[in-house]
């Protein structure tokens, strides 16, 4: 027994494996045993990278033909498990697709699922996972007490990705079986929002704005400052919900997890939901007029003041350099 067979739900974007995929493969490799990657879509383009990061086998469902990944991915995984390859652990990234697939799979396998984890270790025949709660103030460690396959979803950037020394993974076809009623949802059109500058979750500097900006026009200050510092603009959930900026800019529990070397929070109070997405930043600067705002609890430099006064002066000072 033990944890001998681990699967990682692997994702591709623009022809490359996503950073979260490589993080999970690296971690899976360190737990010992055999590692397989499971691509819900065509896995051929990224099979060599997946192999390099530790996947001896790459399951590939092939094109989803408009199906959403949740129902299709879970059914394809269940079919492989029923076919005899029974993993002890399946690791998912905590994102849209990962969440949808692990949810449906948990019902198919009748297994519990532990989400929002940042760490995992083998504990005999079981596993222990760690989950930050209350905005990361406390760490809860939970063990699986039933039988595998254990299902766990991990927050992005929980592990440092590093390639191993293996070659390309062997691609094995894992077609999506007939989905019946659960396959009713079909994608009819895909819209990609244009972005410029560094990606939010990869930028060395992130400047994020919140409700303290007062009005959507003030977000321009955030964008100007981000541009001056060659960084990416980000946002709290409050102003995304208010429709000021697109969801792709959201930092936090339901948005992106960022760990830049500098994070500047402008007019963000620091709700739990936001803090879990940026607390791992190396240096945090906060500007907020409420001295009691929780964001000051994690700030290396906190300015108690009006963003409308501090930001324009800061932008001007940097423009003059």
């Amino acid at each position: 027994m033990g944890i001998d067979n681990i699967w990682v739900f692997a994702q591709e974007t623009n022809g490359a494996a996503t950073p979260a995929t490589l993080e999970l493969l690296t971690k899976a490799r360190s737990l010992g045993g055999t590692v397989s990657a499971f691509v819900v879509g065509d896995g051929n383009a990224i099979a060599s990278t997946l192999g390099e990061y530790g996947a001896a086998k790459v399951y590939s469902t092939g094109d989803l033909a408009g199906n959403l990944p949740g129902a299709a991915g879970a059914a394809a995984m269940k079919a492989v498990i029923d076919g005899g390859d029974r993993p002890d652990l399946i690791m998912f990234p905590q994102n849209y697709e990962g969440r949808d697939i692990v949810s449906r799979l948990s019902v198919k396998l009748d297994r519990t699922v532990l989400t929002n984890n940042t760490q995992v270790e083998v504990d005999g025949d079981s596993l222990k996972v760690t989950t930050p709660v209350f905005g990361g103030e406390q760490l809860v460690t939970t063990t699986f007490t039933g039988e595998g396959p254990f299902l766990a979803a991990f927050r992005p950037k929980s592990f440092e990705p590093a390639p191993g020394d293996a070659g390309a993974g062997e691609v094995v076809s894992a077609p999506v079986p007939d989905l019946g009623a659960t396959g009713g949802a079909k994608v009819t059109a895909v819209h990609v929002e244009e972005t410029t500058g560094p990606k939010l979750d990869e930028a060395a500097v992130v400047v994020a704005g919140g409700r303290g900006l007062g009005q959507s026009e003030s977000f321009e200050m955030v964008e100007s400052l981000a541009k001056l510092l060659k960084g990416a603009p980000g946002a709290s959930r409050a102003i995304v919900d208010a429709g000021w900026v697109p969801y792709s800019m959201q930092v936090g529990q339901t948005g992106k997890v960022v760990k830049p070397s500098v994070y500047i929070a402008a007019g963000i109070s620091g709700a739990t939901q936001h803090m879990v997405g940026m607390k791992g930043s190396k240096n945090i600067i906060a500007i907020n007029k409420d001295a009691e705002a929780p964001i000051f609890g994690v700030a290396d430099l906190g300015i108690v003041g009006d963003v409308h006064k501090v930001m324009p002066k800061l932008i001007e000072a940097l423009q003059g350099r």
Binding site: A291, L301, G302, I303, V304, K309, V310, M311, L314, A317
Partner: peptide, 15 residues
């Protein structure tokens, strides 16, 4: 960290 009150010059502290 260091928390300061803005009295008009706090942006220099950020710089």
């Amino acid at each position: 960290g260091e928390i300061i009150e803005d009295e008009g010059e706090a942006h220099l502290k950020i710089v």
